[in-house]
Amino acid sequence: MLTRGCVTLSLPDQFPAVDVFWQGDLIGPSSGRLRAVVASEYREISQADLLQELARQPDLAAWILQQQQQRIDVLRDRILWLRRPVEHRLVRTLMALDLQAKDRMPEASGIIPLTQRELAGLAGATRENTSTSLNRWSTQGLVELQRRRLRILSHKRLIEVINQSPQPAPTGAAGAAA
């Protein structure tokens, strides 16, 4: 369990970032690599300790299931968004991370502490496409780029990127596979 900070989960040599964890999130056993994007603290809880606590507090199981369900919902949503243009996915990723950062790490004052490579991974985009879009939005004053982090300057104008570009028509399996 992450008790303070923020970490990303990546699959080395495959995906730069597939998930983000914030203070209070449960991180299950995984085969990935965690990177602390800010100074972080965590508790390594053994299965025996967890089972003992579940026997003492059975309603804890409902909370753990709820946490896992929320994570599944987020991942399912990201899969559905893969049909959308890259820039839509980037905007959506930035807006979601901005909300999470403000809610879970308010001391960061709206900073999204992820690298462009990690953002690309979360948005399902290439590093090059991500960099091109972010640099353009930076020039336009929509975002402020810093080393290994960024900040949204205009949420309204960033959302307009989605609203002003053409929406893809609903597609079936053939479209999704294209």
């Binding site: 369990m1 008790t3 900070g5 970490v7 209070g24 056993p29 995984s30 085969s31 990935g32 690599r33 965690l34 990177r35 602390a36 994007v37 800010v38 100074a39 972080s40 603290e41 965590y42 508790r43 390594e44 809880i45 053994s46 300790d49 967890l50 606590e53 507090q57 309603d59 804890l60 909370w63 753990i64």
Partner: peptide, 30 residues
Amino acid sequence: MHFEAIRHLGLAKSLPAGGYLDADATATAA
């Protein structure tokens, strides 16, 4: 509420900004 209930379990560990933790639970500095 549940976060508070289990945050005392197990061993507390820290990871510096930029530090990595691999599946084998060995923390390394960036």
